[in-house]
Amino acid sequence: MRRYARTLVGLALATTMVTGTAGWASGSAQRALTGPPPGTASWRADHSQGALPDPERATPAEVARFFRGLTARQREDLAVRHPLVVGNLDGAPVALRYQANALALRANHDPRYAHLDGGRGRQILAFDPRGRGQVAEVFGDLRSARRVAVVVPGSDIDAGTFDRTSDVYGTPAGMAKALYARTGPGSAVIAWAGYTTPVGLGVDAATGTLAEAGADRLARFTDGLAADGVPAPAVFCHSYGSVVCGLAASRLRVRDLVVLGSPGMRADSAAALHTRARVWAAKDATDWIGRVPNVRVAGLGHGPDPAAPEFGARRVPAEDARGHTGYFAPGTDSLRAFAAITEGTAR
Score class of each variant (00 low, 15 high):
residue 8 L to Q: 14
residue 8 L to N: 04
residue 13 L to A: 06
residue 15 T to N: 01
residue 17 M to H: 10
residue 20 G to T: 10
residue 25 A to Y: 06
residue 25 A to W: 13
residue 25 A to T: 13
residue 28 S to D: 09
residue 34 T to P: 00
residue 35 G to R: 05
residue 43 W to M: 04
residue 44 R to D: 12
residue 46 D to S: 01
residue 52 L to D: 12
residue 58 A to M: 04
residue 60 P to R: 00
residue 61 A to T: 09
residue 63 V to I: 08
residue 76 E to N: 09
residue 79 A to Q: 13
residue 81 R to N: 08
residue 88 N to H: 01
residue 88 N to E: 06
residue 92 A to R: 04
residue 94 V to R: 00
residue 100 A to L: 13
residue 101 N to P: 12
residue 105 L to C: 04
residue 105 L to R: 04
residue 107 A to P: 00
residue 116 L to P: 01
residue 121 G to K: 00
residue 122 R to T: 12
residue 123 Q to W: 07
residue 123 Q to R: 15
residue 129 P to T: 04
residue 138 V to Q: 03
residue 142 L to K: 01
residue 151 V to R: 02
residue 156 D to P: 00
residue 156 D to C: 05
residue 159 A to F: 06
residue 161 T to Y: 07
residue 167 D to V: 15
residue 171 T to V: 13
residue 177 K to W: 08
residue 182 R to V: 15
residue 185 P to H: 11
residue 187 S to E: 07
residue 190 I to L: 10
residue 192 W to D: 13
residue 194 G to V: 07
residue 204 D to E: 06
residue 208 G to F: 02
residue 212 E to M: 11
residue 217 R to I: 14
residue 219 A to M: 05
residue 222 T to W: 03
residue 222 T to V: 13
residue 224 G to M: 04
residue 229 G to N: 11
residue 229 G to E: 09
residue 230 V to F: 10
residue 233 P to Y: 07
residue 237 C to W: 07
residue 238 H to K: 06
residue 242 S to W: 03
residue 248 A to K: 10
residue 253 R to I: 01
residue 256 D to P: 14
residue 256 D to Y: 14
residue 256 D to N: 15
residue 267 A to Y: 11
residue 271 A to I: 03
residue 273 L to Y: 05
residue 285 A to D: 13
residue 287 D to V: 02
residue 295 V to P: 02
residue 298 A to H: 05
residue 299 G to T: 12
residue 306 P to N: 07
residue 308 A to M: 03
residue 310 E to F: 11
residue 312 G to P: 05
residue 312 G to E: 07
residue 312 G to R: 08
residue 314 R to P: 00
residue 317 P to N: 11
residue 321 A to T: 11
residue 324 H to S: 06
residue 328 F to D: 00
residue 334 S to L: 03
residue 336 R to G: 15
residue 340 A to R: 15
residue 341 I to G: 14
